[in-house]
């Protein structure tokens, strides 16, 4: 494996909540520039895996490396440095409810990026425009719809121009058009920013439209049963994966 091209390497990762095993022995590599899909049935541990990748939850065993640097077996400064190169879109958006949309985006820019107020505002306006929310800068998260929250959260995830973007079910709860629009946006982001993108989703159209690599987590065996290009997995993957990718219409 060419270590240079690996954005994220996951090695024998085991995840637990207390005594409860969620997934074990996960090993896969996300290459730089990939749009990497984490798929699997509801409750199989996709969000949990994401939390392990972004440094919110410590693995029960195994390693997560970013460009060769270990996320968990290193000091806090290294971990913070890695986290700063990552942008995260949480499943619920997770906008800070006491701040307006533009303040949500400006906060990391000012505190972490060290930009002054005027510059941060200007850049934040651009990010809002990118996700189609120009004009909503002064709204509070409680004043906009669920789909708009997701888009605003996406703008915030991009605040510091991250190298790696993590999306947890970006299109859940969106209508088909907005969802397709979001897919285009994700492709656009990779093309224009050269970002690596990790997406949790079970929207089949999205998986095929944007993913070029994937891992499939199985709820029964509590481990991954396939990794690779979703289009290839749909042809020649294990039965469970083919069934998933064809909505159960395989023979």
């Amino acid at each position: 494996m060419q270590a240079i091209d690996a954005a994220i390497e996951v090695d024998a990762l085991t995840m637990r909540y207390g005594d409860r095993l969620i997934q074990r022995d996960l090993s896969f590599t996300v290459a730089r520039g990939d749009i990497f899909i984490i798929m699997g049935g509801s409750g199989c541990g996709k969000s949990t895996l994401l939390r392990h990748l972004i440094g919110l939850q410590e693995p029960a065993a195994g390693r997560v490396r970013f460009a060769g640097r270990d996320l968990w077996h290193s000091d806090e400064a290294t971990r913070n440095a890695i986290q700063r190169r990552c942008g995260v879109l949480f499943q619920s958006g997770a906008l800070w409810s006491s701040l307006t949309l533009i303040e949500n985006i400006m906060l990391p820019m000012k505190r972490i990026g060290g930009f002054d107020d005027a510059l941060a505002r200007e850049l934040a306006e651009v990010k809002l425009a990118l996700v189609g929310l120009a004009g909503f800068a002064e709204f509070y998260p409680s004043e906009i719809s669920g789909g708009m929250k997701k888009r605003a959260a996406l703008a915030r995830a991009m605040a510091l121009d991250p190298d790696i973007l993590f999306f947890d079910e970006p299109s859940a709860g969106l209508d088909p058009l907005s969802s397709a629009h979001l897919d285009e946006l994700i492709l656009e982001l990779r093309a224009s920013l050269g970002a690596t993108i990790v997406v949790v989703t079970h929207e089949l159209p999205s998986i095929f439209a944007i993913g070029n690599n994937a891992v499939f987590l199985d709820a029964d065996s509590r481990t991954m049963i396939a990794t690779g290009d979703p289009k290839i997995l749909a042809e020649s993957g294990p039965d469970t994966v083919r069934a998933f990718l064809s909505r159960g219409k395989t023979t």
């Binding site: 919110l56 986290q83 990552c86 995260v88 949480f90 499943q91 800070w96 409810s97 906060l107 990391p108």
Partner: peptide, 17 residues
């Protein structure tokens, strides 16, 4: 607590805030 439920606190942590 509500911020915890909405993952707002996680969002702060991922930014290193």
């Amino acid at each position: 607590g509500t911020m915890q439920v909405n993952e707002e606190i996680d969002a702060l942590r991922t930014f290193g805030l």
